[in-house]
Design a protein around this nucleic acid. Structure first.
Lengths: 221, 221
DNA sequence: AAATTTTTTTAGATTAGCCTAAAAATAAAT
DNA sequence: ATTTATTTTTAGGCTAATCTAAAAAAATTT
């Protein structure tokens, strides 16, 4: 049988944490990600282990099984394809699509997502620059670095964000920085690690260290 | 607060029954429509009455309140707009879209449905010819009659179906009868009320009484 | 009008998913 | 190596939505 929305959301949370931390996800980390209590998480972990979607040993944290990983990957695929649809076709801004995609990703139907993928032209990245796994679960890779690790004089193309929050995305809009924007690093202030950059249209912009640590770019040349 | 999927589905079922029967919906009729038991229906009716979505008196059947009617209308609007999207944009056949739309209609977000409506060009009818209420809940009206009530020699344009089942829709596909098809009634067989029609491309087709009672047409002239 | 049938409601359980509070296990600090 | 703090699990309860079986009300038939 299919998995419930709650189960799917837990699997996605576990996938995210394992990816970021590089190790088994702890009960507390999952609870934080899911905005719920540790007790609720333990409950759910038992159910997911029962269904062979995770490897779970009491007090030891959890990892997705092969099967659980597949479910999570499909879910991320669906989420990101819907985000592309919402921005490209319906005209939503990149800071508005997350909650809607969060709902749409749970719509069941294999042919739906494959037809949507075709309709959208098989996009490889979502509106935030995150890769969209293909139908076989393969991830596109694109070399990128944080603005904060670029060298003086280097030029890059904005490819993604680390922080997906609406305030950050809206601030980038305000600065005129979107995916695909060209940015040259012209100065780094030692005092606070803020940077001065020149954007493609010739404007000079000052960005804080925090922005620098949340903006990904592909280096030119 | 918003309504659950289950609540929304009950409201839609009650709306459908009231529309068809023209009177208060009975517990059993709702149970049949929802494919559940009368006891479950009674439970839900209490909850819906509590939320002022229906007028409910024990043993007396139910009617939607103004508020309940609005919820049901919005739900039908969402369902039918998604059906248009699935057929027009994703290329699904008219017999494939119901179950997917049944899920998509529960996605919450006012701006989503209005943007979808705009993206689709404000369609007035869904892929089965059923009217799509507008954002204010107004229904388009189009005079139409059943093929079984047409007079000999009359010509009509196919505008909708009474039976929405996949087998019927697929049979129409096979016969080459789609929405917009031109059909002239050339003979009615008294013995079994089957009819002989000429379609727009000149082909002569024999249709059973059952087909005649499930095909709507707008009469020409 | 009384008896019978049908419809509807109530009573009592069940399941998923969530909670708080308390207990148990693990990790960290002295 | 104890003590202390943190993390995790258990215990017990709650709600929405479902079910079956039994009781009650309404409708129908005789």
């Amino acid at each position: 049988m299919a998995n419930s929305h709650a189960e799917e959301n837990y699997l996605k949370a576990i996938f995210k944490i394992s990816e970021k931390e590089g190790k088994a996800a702890s009960t507390n980390a999952i609870a934080a990600e899911m905005q719920t209590t540790a007790a609720s998480v333990t409950d759910m972990l038992k159910r997911l282990a029962e269904k062979n979607l995770i490897d779970y040993e009491k007090y030891r944290g959890v990892q997705l099984t092969e099967q659980g990983g597949r479910v999570a990957t499909v879910l991320i695929r669906k989420h990101r394809l819907w985000e592309v649809f919402l921005t490209e076709k319906l005209g939503f801004a990149w800071d508005e699509v997350h909650d809607l995609a969060e709902q749409l990703e749970h719509v069941q139907g294999d042919s739906l997502i494959e037809r949507l993928d075709t309709f959208l032209g098989h996009p490889k990245f979502d509106p935030h620059g995150d890769p969209i796994p293909d139908a076989q679960g393969r991830w596109a890779f694109r070399p990128q670095v944080l603005l904060s690790t670029m060298k003086l004089g280097e030029t890059g193309t904005v490819t993604g964000v680390n922080d997906h929050s609406a305030p950050f995305l809206q601030y980038l809009d305000q600065l005129g920085i979107a995916l695909g924007a060209q940015i040259e690093l012209i100065e780094r202030v030692p005092f606070d690690q803020s940077v001065r950059v020149r954007s493609g249209d010739g404007r000079e912009i000052t960005l804080s260290e925090k922005v620098g640590k949340n903006l990904f770019l592909a280096i030119k040349g």
